[in-house]
Design a protein around this nucleic acid. Structure first.
Lengths: 217, 217
DNA sequence: ATTCAAAGTAGCCAACTGTATACCTAACTG
DNA sequence: CAGTTAGGTATACAGTTGGCTACTTTGAAT
């Protein structure tokens, strides 16, 4: 039949075929609770409204698609969470702000969280390494912001990074809970805030403890 | 052909058909990095060395199998981590002991961790709820042990539980890192220990802060 | 205006999947 | 001992899958 086609350079238009395939893959993986690599070419082409052979025009393997999806998710996370951080900085309580804006992001981009958390915990997935680097980068940017605003009695830069990384991972993982039980947003938010406070205070306490130990010698 | 059979009540013998199917499913899910529900009846029967129809003698659906696998993993985790906790209590430093024995458990049961962490982060999986309850139970038992030995200036029982739960989840998730990079055991152990210390100290600090606040009013 | 490559389509194939029906056999039960 | 049943097997079927080759359309460059 050969229905109408288009060679748009995406910008604005109804998304290029490649993009549509990636989005379809994410949608299906999120809906069916499968790993990205288990989605199947044909199903995903169907979901994207394309012939199944079109897949091969854009990707070699299924693994190749996962790589592209990883880039997509990474990009969305980077810009989304950057916005979260900046909004949080203008909030009366930066911690509460970070949590609330983050949960807004989760509600607006559930697929990213659903697929992202699962792939992050799948050893075989090529996306895992990408996501780990994304979380590290976000943590590093948080450290920069925290130190520049003197939000926390600084401690060793390395410790601050570890804490930020743990918090970032914690929030990421617990985004799932919000998607699972949207009506529990308030208690989830409270737990996140409590966790963050505990981490920072604990970090300071550890620092003091080590300083005291060093004095004793 | 109809090869020899047996109606053993498992105990000791070479495992019942049901058991063998569950084990095969876990092995395959761990090996291929897929979700349990994506393993496929035939492949799993093949791995178990059984005819594919035998599956239906033991399970109705694929979902049914996942449920049984959940029970299996839950049981292994409960007994394994109980042993970890008890060994840790006899260690000079309970925290270091808990971490080291836990990592031993991870190295001895990689499939449980690999599959467990992935299913725990899969919304659709019936195993997720089971694992959440397992982690909660383990956290509660830890609380009991901690209070009975007066290891931590007690704080509110509820706070202690939250901290234990966070720590349990943290360790569980980071078991994957050990499987991913077995040569990094020492740094992973160090990070786990640091995290646990930070959590407990942070929890105490939060408690003190709140007490002080209450005095001011 | 012609050429050309990129993006899409169509149809085919062998392999595999889940499921259903029918058959076999060991062990327990009356 | 006869009967029943739980666990195992064989075979068949329709639907799906990944991958192949061959054709068509499109937009852009020459």
């Amino acid at each position: 039949m050969n229905t109408p086609q288009a060679t748009q350079q995406d910008v604005g238009g109804p998304a290029s075929g490649k993009q549509r395939l990636v989005e379809a893959a994410l949608r299906l993986a999120a809906r069916d609770g499968t790993t990205l690599s288990a989605v199947g070419l044909r199903e995903m082409a169907r979901e994207a409204g394309l012939n199944h052979n079109t897949f091969y025009r854009h990707f070699r393997n299924a693994e190749d698609l996962v790589g592209a999806a990883a880039e997509e998710i990474a990009a969305q996370l980077m810009v989304g969470l950057k916005a979260v951080r900046q909004s949080a900085a203008r909030h009366a309580d930066a911690t509460v702000g970070a949590v609330e804006y983050f949960l807004d992001f989760v509600e607006a981009n559930p697929d990213v969280i659903v697929v992202g958390t699962r792939e992050l915990h799948s050893l075989a997935s090529p996306m895992r390494a990408v996501l780990q680097r994304v979380l590290e980068t976000i943590a590093q940017e948080s450290v920069a912001q925290i130190t520049s605003q003197n939000l926390v009695k600084l401690e060793s830069r390395e410790q601050l990074f570890q804490v930020s990384l743990d918090i970032t991972r914690y929030m990421f993982s617990h985004g799932l809970d919000l998607i699972d039980r949207p009506q529990d947003r308030r208690v989830i938010a409270a737990k996140l805030v409590a966790h963050i406070r505990r981490q920072f205070l604990g970090s300071i306490a550890v620092q003091q403890l080590e300083a005291r130990k060093q004095l004793e010698t």
